[in-house]
Write a protein that binds this DNA or RNA. Structure first.
Lengths: 295, 295
DNA sequence: GCCAAGCTTGGC
DNA sequence: GCCAAGCTTGGC
């Protein structure tokens, strides 16, 4: 199953009236958890980029997001840890798990963005929320697309150091899987999940307040933990760029074709779609419902 | 100057090519800071509700938001404190100030929503960010529309207790101004700015984890500080409902007329507006620019 | 470049 | 009802 087939499948079961959201999620989980590593890796490589053809704010977007949680849990399983996908929604992390060989537990949160995504705001990463959601667990791991993290400075870097949140990426996980990294009595991956704490020991308060991107040092800790040369990781991260650029070219085509489609619309169709697109009736209904709630 | 005239003025100077954003802000500030209390109060009553005719994501929305900062600073001045509007943007509170009679400083943040606003997410209140932006100041005061706060439970209530952030509202400030509350050697308003801390002393950890709306108890502290009966405040808050409902009826009309306008569009106009509304060219440009940044 | 200012839909 | 999942424009 290719990534394109996976997203088609998500769109299909999301539309199906016979399958509830929860059932769809379980079906996806069965599918993905049972994939052999070589079939899983191509999906892991693409999952951080939401296809533009997934409707924004739609049920299929929610199911896609559930799929990112499942892919994250599957990855944790592949690297030798227990991992389950959370059923809750509000005020909770996506993934929970524990080490098989060492005495620690963790929570994980999966994030994906479209390539057309504009501002990635500090509040959108919810790093401080992750600290709360960590609760009694030992580590909190946030997984985002590597090249969508703020490049130079961001409040999220200070927040991660403060709360010991591990800012990881799908691209890092690909590197782990490609190199068959598996936790064992000899290898304790908690050094990675704990790297913000380790870094904060050597960062002065003044530097912390600069909110500098700390991936250079983070990558060093990651590589020393898994016993790989830093340059291998850097080369691997670089390789992902070409793939993303290629994805981007396809995604641009999608929107260009959409423009051509729209140019063929009849007047009635264009007017009706415009009212839908501007959410005018929804706004009216939102105001009505709000003032209703006051009376 | 009525509120409607103020928003017209904001729209006008925001469009003007001769006036920079900063200059417009200073002009607004001169205007609002010089208003006598009886001219200011009607504006304070309306400022928390962004008019629907202010374009979303536009420069005029940014200037409107600057205006909420100015109105907040003016209110703090009216109740006897020093207060200035911040010029920074990223990673900073909107308003800074200090008491004239007591030895404390504070930061403030002003929020406004349209009546058509849907989810008010916990991350949108940025309560934890307020704690960071407080820095060395003593208090952090967040001012939102009273009836847009989460009604029963929210992570923001736990966050406010944790970080000692004062969750206040425009409606509370109206009550202060209407009753000529002014800080003095005898009256120390920091009891109000500090009320989350006071409340957290009597709230058990178990209750805190429920993230319960604590306004009932907050209102008691507010009233005992300013020496007013709780029922007066509650009656005053109630009175605002009718005003908001009336505003809502006007705002609904605005969108209904918009629908009628659109129904008169020509095919070309509707298609062109639809492409604009769906931000299709912006999406293409965003993808191009992102993949460009990778190469 | 960062992220303040805003924002929506739908799952639990 | 709360807020997870997403999202954009423009000021510094």
């Amino acid at each position: 199953m290719t990534f394109a087939e996976l997203t088609e499948f998500i769109k299909k079961i999301s539309k199906s009236k016979d399958t509830s959201f929860q059932e769809s999620g379980l079906e996806l989980q069965k599918l993905i958890f049972s994939l052999p590593k070589d079939k899983f890796l191509p999906i892991l490589k693409e999952i951080g980029t939401i296809p533009e053809n997934i409707d924004h704010d739609s049920s299929e977007e929610k199911l896609y997001s559930k799929c990112t949680d499942i892919v994250l849990a599957k990855t944790f399983q592949e690297i030798g840890m227990k991992s389950t996908v959370n059923k809750e929604r509000a005020n909770s992390a996506d993934v929970f798990g524990k080490s098989e060989y060492h005495d620690y537990t963790y929570v994980g949160d999966a994030k994906a963005f479209r390539l057309s995504r504009t501002a990635k705001n500090q509040k959108d990463f919810k790093v401080k929320s992750m600290v709360d959601w960590k609760g009694d667990n030992d580590y909190a791991i946030l997984v985002c697309p590597y090249y969508q993290y703020p490049k130079t400075n961001s409040q999220i870097y200070g927040q991660a150091l403060d709360g010991n949140v591990c800012l990881l990426s799908w691209e890092h996980l690909v590197f782990f899987i490609e190199h068959n990294i598996v936790e064992s009595t000899k290898m304790n991956l908690s050094r990675i999940w704990n790297f913000s704490d380790t870094l904060s020991e050597s960062i002065t308060i003044k530097d912390k307040n600069k909110n500098t991107n700390f991936y250079q040092d983070g990558n060093k800790i990651i590589c020393s933990t898994i016993g790989k040369p830093l340059n291998d990781l850097i080369a691997s991260l670089e390789k992902h760029k070409a793939r993303i650029i290629q994805r981007g070219q396809g995604e641009i085509k999608f929107w260009e074709e959409k423009i051509q489609d729209i140019k063929k619309y009849s007047k009635e169709q264009a007017i009706s779609e415009l009212i839908t697109s501007m959410k005018l009736n929804e706004k009216i209904e939102a105001i009505r419902s709000y003032i209703q709630s006051l009376s």
